[in-house]
Amino acid sequence: MLLIHCPYCDEARPEVEFAYGGEAHIARPVDPSTYSDEQWEEFLYIRSNPRGRHHERWRHTHGCGRFFNAVRDTVSDVFETTYKAGEARK
């Protein structure tokens, strides 16, 4: 079971307290109607799926309830860092 550091609680807590939230830093466009079908498809469905460093969202569902971002290595599952939502990509 992973230990995940919640940047809001500032504590490493067991994985069961968290829910995975998909790839991070995919912002919803301010006005989706300006997006072409291709751009919208990209936003909806296309993800980077890297081998290695992955920026992803987690929610401390059974803790503070906050969404935050993490960098995890998809091969080793090691978390490089976690940081608050809204902070720049690390």
Binding site: A19, R59, T61, F67, A85, G86
Partner: peptide, 13 residues
């Protein structure tokens, strides 16, 4: 609730 929190916290904070 999770979905609403998601939008509220991350898109329309």
């Amino acid at each position: 609730l999770n979905m609403m929190e998601d939008y509220l916290q991350t898109e329309w904070s």
